[in-house]
Write a protein that binds this DNA or RNA. Structure first.
Lengths: 138, 138
DNA sequence: GTAACTGCAAAATATTTGCATCCTT
DNA sequence: AAGGATGCAAATATTTTGCAGTTAC
């Protein structure tokens, strides 16, 4: 597990620091999307709030994580699984938010459909967020 | 135009006040989604920031407006056109964000497709936000 | 007249920036 | 050793709450 994490950092030309390792590890462990708050409280060692902000921003720039737009406009971050290169994030999967337990997750196996727009509009990216009840809660 | 606005307020059992009329009018005029900031700066008479917050919240509760989840997690509000009753907001249309001019709009004429989720998940609502270039910018 | 709404002050929360110090390479 | 990352302090921005005065009905 650990080596995988350092690899990700190396591959993105980021120096390997404690906070980055721990935060990235948390993403790998949880498997779901995390809010800033989840990150601050999900790690034993306390890192400065500012460090968390900057780390998330760095990960975003490198395409390691991405934000998920949720219906209530809470900011959540999730690992980019696949073909995200620096600056060019591209999701093709659906995001899910559970109305009961609040978990937010990427459904990698569910693809977003192609949607035809009226004449004149050009699609660059389609985001789909489905809210409902997850396996555990339904 | 004006009478239409007062009607909406009446229908929702809200007392008719200046701020509510002006803010609602702004939504009708703009035809697109508005951020809190757009509302504060889009009205000549200056209403207190707190009043704007509370008015938006009231409109949300009554189902007059709804929030749109945008890719950058900015909070935007738009009129509910159709079958939204108090507490039960239900969109069936797609939201569009222009990457150039930044406009956010509801594409009433584009319906969200039905998406099958893996066994165990239950869908309650599907939100679709497409970013790209609008008629004017493409 | 009464209940509801507004504006002001201030608290609570969230995010960003500058800078000195420390750590990775 | 040098550049980048962190932590602290503080500046900004955002949202919420309490309360007194005002307005709609």
């Amino acid at each position: 597990m650990k080596p995988q994490i350092e690899e990700v950092l190396k591959k993105n030309q980021l120096s390997i620091t404690d906070s980055r390792k721990k935060i990235l590890e948390l993403f790998f462990q949880s498997g779901s999307a995390l809010a800033h708050h989840d990150i601050e409280s999900g790690i034993n060692e306390k890192y400065d709030r500012v460090t968390v902000y900057r780390t998330l921003q760095t990960f975003m720039e490198k395409g390691i994580i991405h934000t998920i737009p949720t219906p209530d406009n809470a900011v959540k971050y999730a690992l980019c699984k696949d073909n995200c290169e620096q600056g060019h994030h591209h999701d093709d999967h659906v995001h899910f938010v559970c109305l009961k337990c609040g978990i937010t997750a990427c459904l990698e196996e569910v693809h977003v459909p192609e949607i035809k727009l009226p004449r004149g509009y050009k699609t660059r990216q389609t985001e789909v967020v489905i809210s409902g009840f997850c396996k555990a809660c339904s």
